[in-house]
Structures are given as C-alpha cells and as structure tokens.
C-alpha cells in the first residue's frame, strides 16, 4: 500500500476549510501551517480570475527530507507516509533546506521540525485525513495509489493527461497530485509575491522558528 493525495483544482473554491480542519486536528501552533491554500490572481481587469492551490507535504517516494535527516526523525512508514518523530528531532533544519516544496517548518512550541503527515494517526484508526473530511466539494481525494480500484487511482485514470505534480524535475516522485493545475498554480516562480499588505492579509517572511 502506498497512500497518495490528489487535489482537483477545478473543484477547489478556496474556502480554507481544509486549513482550519488541519490546524484543529493537529493542534498546529499560530504562525505555522501544515496545509495552506494560496490565492493567486491572474489576468488584468476585467479579464481576471482567482486560482486556489492547497499546498502540503508531498510525501515523496524519494524524499530529500528523509535522506538529509541525521537522526531518522523523518522516516517512512509502511503505507508510504513520510512521518516525523518529534521526540527524536534535533532541530538542525536540514529538512527545511532539503524540501523543494517548502512544506516543513520549525514548530515554535516544540522547537522541532513539523509538517503534514497525511494525518497518519487518523489513518491508523481507519479514518480519512481531517482535510479530506472537511472539504465541502470533495476536491481532496485520498487513497492507495497502488490499488487500481481505489478512488484516487480511478480519478488519475479518468483525468489522464491533466494530472501533475509540483517540481517533477527534482526527481522526488511526489505522492501528491493535482488535476487542473498550471504553471501559475504549481510553480512559485510564475507569480509575483510582494511583501506587505495585500487584498486580504499581510504577506511576509517570519524569523527562525516562525515566531511573530
């Protein structure tokens, strides 16, 4: 069994229900995020549209974070999830340097690395990840990518040609897929991210540890 995730960006409406569900389920501290939804506005008025991209750990088959971790705090579990042992982590931040997707952060409360685990604790109890349950439009599809009868495998087969991963050139083989993605939604270099106040919030970089 190899668990994977697929987000259909045609369906996502940017409600951020998944973000909140993740925060609550995993008690993610303020200023840090295991899962976030990024809004990118495209075009010039009146020809504009808004895109929504949920971003989380890709649980790569060839995970750079697992390779660089000096103490195996980041490790694979049998179902393919890249999990983290916060009791073992020494907080060297090597994983943050290695992750091409910016999915890992230092938890300001425990001073250890943290990231999305596909809710490994829920899966162990045969439950779906919290973000999947919370999504009102079923844009999140989760399941076994080695089982051709699973929902995610069927979805990938049905949308063959429109399924993408982020930064495939890195050779990480992500187990996280997008349907309906494009350069603007999946490539951070393809959009302008200005520091300062935007339409909704202040966009900025935090100092080490994620403290304000």
């Amino acid at each position: 069994m190899k668990l994977g995730f697929l987000v259909d960006l045609h369906l996502c409406m940017g409600c951020k229900g998944c973000e909140i569900a993740c925060k609550v389920e995993n008690e993610v501290p303020l200023s840090t995020w295991r899962l976030r939804v990024k809004y990118v506005d495209v075009g010039t008025f009146p020809e504009t549209k808004r895109t929504f991209t949920p971003l989380r750990c890709n649980h790569c088959e060839n995970a750079p974070c697992e390779r660089i971790c000096p103490v195996s705090a980041l490790h694979y579990i049998e179902n393919g999830i890249v999990n983290i042992d916060k009791e073992r982590c020494i907080g060297c931040a090597g994983c943050i340097m290695a992750c091409p997707y910016g999915a890992i952060y230092i938890d300001p409360e425990t001073q250890t690395a943290d990231k999305c685990t596909y809710c490994a604790h829920r899966i162990a109890s045969s439950m779906m990840p919290a973000c999947v349950v919370a999504c009102p439009v079923e844009a999140n599809i989760f399941g076994d990518i080695e089982d051709p009868t699973s929902n995610i495998s069927k979805y990938i087969m049905q949308h063959n040609g429109d399924v993408q991963v982020r930064k495939p050139e890195k050779g990480t083989n992500p187990h996280h897929f997008y349907v309906g993605g494009g350069n603007v939604t999946l490539n951070p270099l393809a959009s302008f991210r200005a520091e300062g106040h935007s339409l909704f919030n202040e966009m900025k970089h935090l100092p080490i540890g994620g403290h304000h």
């Binding site: 506005d41 010039t44 340097m97 910016g102 603007v184 302008f192």
Partner: peptide
Amino acid sequence: MVHESLAATNAVVTLDVALPGIVWGW
C-alpha cells in the same frame, strides 16, 4: 520574485500565509 511570469499573465499572490525567512543564518 517574478522569474517565469508573463506580463500578459499578470499573476499575483493575493492571499498567503507568512513564510519562514532565513533559517540557516550567520
């Protein structure tokens, strides 16, 4: 940082969380 963006695309991030800054510093 805009590198691949096109003027015609005019893609701008309008909502995002605060991202970690420099982690390995002096």
